[in-house]
Design a protein around this nucleic acid. Structure first.
Length: 407
DNA sequence: GTTGGAAAGG
């Protein structure tokens, strides 16, 4: 008489703590029971199991004796079992709906998240540096620095991703000083998601050629910290000014200001690549606006550092050290200011952090050294200004805006 | 006559 050995009754049981999620499969014992300890290995505080009875739609509890969970019939079947946790004081219904809505919310948050590009990184920044810095906004699920595959050198940008949309939005809503460089975080190749953010940047119309970037910075700094000025070359009678605080930018829009005796108009900076009517600009493929027949040239010899450059505040002066404001103009300007309710001189927010003679060195050793615009926020470029020729860069702070983005 | 500068993932 032979005993028929029932071979390996053990099976994998589908278990989850959330019905809206993928179950995990955990093994039963050979006698067909499931050890609570096996369950607890996956769900540490679990105290039992239940499953939905397909006939009634009700939950059924699983028998538990001595740390063994017993299959509802002779076997576990193909049910998906739900982990039961100690209840605290909560009513059952509350807990279930709470769990579900919390989970739904989390999933929603994740779905709304996207990879974010970080532009303007210091050359030396590593994945760890990014992670360390950006973790202050929330948990990161991605941190990478793009490098030249050959040399391994950073290309000066990278990608991060948050788990929570809220974290992502908080992160995108400000600029970041990473190791002395101002960096922007945006959604790559798209404005979506950043659309509702207010621009930090204003468009300055009716500029004259003798309004230099340092004039603009000196003037607009009274309203708030100016983090970038851009004047297109060749001269086109307009400029851009970016503030650390978007609200400052917004508050100036629509106003006329007198700078060096010239009435300039401040308005919203249209997203790049559109004009003020929001029309997309079409550019002939072969002819760039920069130079004949080629991609925008990038001039490595310009740039770098700030030869005789003088950081810090200077009054309304040009590179020759002349004071542009005669007192009549000053009075006029201040009258305008007062009429507009502006208090001169206030500069809220942290000052640009200097510390980056350093980057120039890195930059110098970079391939293709497009490091020109990576001047530190504290570099004023007084020196560059005077000998400026075509193609010269004349801002200072780490390239505030990039293609396709607000700033 | 008045809307941008380097880099956007193999």
């Amino acid at each position: 008489m032979t005993c028929i050995k029932i071979e390996n009754m053990s099976q994998y049981i589908q278990v989850t703590d959330d019905e809206s999620e993928e179950p995990i499969e955990i093994p039963s014992e050979e006698d067909g029971t499931l050890l609570l300890s096996t369950l607890a290995a996956q769900f540490p505080t679990a105290c039992g199991l239940k499953y939905r009875n397909p006939q009634t739609g009700n939950y059924r509890g699983i028998r538990l004796t001595d740390g063994n969970l017993h299959p509802p019939e002779s076997h576990w079947g193909s049910h998906v079992y739900i982990v039961v946790f100690p209840k605290d004081n909560k009513r059952k219904g509350d807990e279930v709906t709470e769990n579900i809505s919390a989970k739904t919310k989390r999933v929603d948050q994740q779905k709304k998240c996207s990879d974010l590009i970080v532009l303007g990184l210091p050359w030396k920044s590593t994945e760890d540096d990014l992670r360390n810095y950006f973790s202050q906004f929330g948990e990161l699920v991605l941190s990478q620095v793009k490098r030249d595959p050959k040399t391994g050198l950073s290309k000066g940008y990278g990608f991060i991703r948050f788990n929570k949309y809220d974290d992502q939005m908080r992160c995108m809503s400000q600029r970041h000083n990473i190791d002395g460089r101002w960096c922007d975080v945006t959604i790559p190749n798209s404005n979506e998601g950043a659309q509702h953010l207010v621009s930090r940047k204003v468009f300055i119309a009716r500029c004259t050629e003798d309004i230099k970037s340092e004039d603009l910075k000196a003037y607009f700094s009274r309203f708030g910290e100016v983090v970038d000025v851009f004047i297109p070359k060749p001269f086109r009678s307009f400029a851009f000014v970016s503030f650390a605080d978007p609200e400052v930018a917004q508050s100036l829009c629509g106003e006329d200001h007198i700078i060096k005796g010239v009435s300039v108009h401040v308005s919203y900076a249209a997203p790049k690549g559109t004009d003020r009517h929001g029309e997309k600009k079409v550019q002939m493929p072969s002819k760039g606006i920069y130079q004949q027949g080629g991609p925008p040239g990038w001039n490595p010899q310009h740039g770098q550092g700030n030869p005789g450059g003088k950081p810090g505040n200077m009054p309304e002066m040009n590179s020759l050290g002349m004071n542009f404001f005669n007192s009549a103009m000053l009075a006029a300007a201040q009258a305008v200011l007062q009429q507009q309710g502006w208090a001169p001189g206030g500069t809220p927010g942290a000052p640009p952090q200097g510390s980056s003679g350093d980057n120039a060195h890195h930059a110098a050793s970079q391939p293709g050294s497009y490091s020109t615009s990576q001047g530190s926020a504290s570099n004023w470029g007084w020196g560059q200004q005077s000998d400026s020729t075509a193609g010269g860069y004349q801002g200072w702070g780490g390239g505030a805006t990039r293609q396709g983005g607000w700033n």
